[in-house]
């Protein structure tokens, strides 16, 4: 019921042991050469060239391959040859598990099919943003996963509204926020009404009534919901090659006039119309 990678799926289901998976990961680590290692193995550059490029990376935000081309250590064709060799010799985790004897080929295919079916619900249907952003695909995936989790975790029926650029963060009963760092810089916010907070609490706590729950617990359930969404966003982003670190969630109670958008950020607002007439709002504060 979450975004996973194949090894985790197998361990969680008890198909392979964590020891076997670690053995397969170690095999992958030994087999799958990084770009610099492959370039040296193909005798296209020396370890000293790689070291010089690594040093240059401290002051230049460029991938190693691009930098080696820029510094004249590689031609563009050589860089492409290295990438192709990396792809052709890459040992996938499933194959590595077969090689360490944890799975047979037949079992691997069967489990890959089961994994594909398990993860199919997290394949993005596509969302369009009103602004262009360097990490557009990540934000589209974030919104898409939010919608999916509203259905699957909260069991709420809804209709997504049109995304707009917001000029303030409007007043709501409660906002739960989570900061994202790493390859992106953003704040993920879910805004809810008092009634929606209770709906979320009922779903998260698996209780029919939450009328007697303290405010602290009700707020915590909304924070836990965004924790689950953002954790799954980080997992999906890592599959897309983007590192997202998330901080523990916090609550925000904006004043009646709302909150200003911090300088240097764009605010994308996604209204989420719940079936009973209530509205939730997803706000992404994205660094420009």
């Amino acid at each position: 019921m979450a975004v996973k990678f194949f090894g985790q799926f197998l361990v969680e289901r008890g198909i392979v042991t964590s020891e076997a998976l670690l053995g397969a990961i170690n095999l992958q680590d030994n087999n799958n050469l990084k770009f610099g290692e492959m370039a040296v193995a193909m005798k296209l550059v020396t370890p000293a060239d790689i070291q010089r490029a690594h040093n240059a990376q401290m002051s230049k935000d460029m991938k190693l391959g691009d930098l080696l081309v820029e510094m004249g250590f590689l031609t563009l064709d050589q860089m492409n040859d290295i990438v192709t060799r990396q792809k052709n010799t890459h040992l996938y985790i499933g194959e590595a598990l077969v090689q360490v004897g944890a799975l047979t080929q037949d079992e691997l295919q069967k489990q890959l099919d089961a994994f594909k079916a398990d993860q199919a619900e997290y394949v993005s249907d596509g969302i369009e943003l009103p602004i262009s952003s360097a990490n557009e695909k990540i934000w589209e995936m974030t919104v898409d996963l939010t919608y999916k989790m509203i259905t699957r975790v909260l069991d709420l029926q809804f209709r997504p509204g049109k995304c707009a650029v917001a000029t303030t963060i409007p007043h709501h009963f409660m906002l739960a926020a989570m900061d994202m760092a790493g390859d992106v810089e953003a704040r993920y916010i879910i805004a809810v009404s008092e009634e929606l907070q209770k709906s979320i609490a009922r779903a998260i706590l698996s209780e029919e009534s939450v009328e007697d729950e303290p405010a602290e617990v009700l707020e915590d359930t909304v924070m836990e919901f965004i924790n689950v969404v953002c954790g799954n966003v980080a997992a999906k982003a890592s599959q897309m090659g983007v590192i997202i670190d998330i901080n523990p969630p916090i609550t925000v109670h904006p004043p009646a006039q709302g909150l200003p958008i911090p300088a240097g950020y764009s605010a994308l607002s996604f209204p989420i119309h719940i079936k009973d007439g209530d509205t939730m709002e997803l706000i992404l504060l994205v660094k420009d």
Binding site: A2, V3, K4, F5, G7, Q8, V11, E12, S18, L21, L22, I25, N227, V228, V229, C230, G231, N232, A234, A235, K236, S238, I246
Partner: peptide, 21 residues
């Protein structure tokens, strides 16, 4: 954890001795 699907975090947990995630 909600971060179990992040490959590096999952592997790090197993390497540090976690029995499962």
């Amino acid at each position: 954890t909600s971060l179990g699907g992040v490959g590096d975090k999952f592997t790090e947990a197993l390497r540090l001795g976690a029995k499962n995630v």
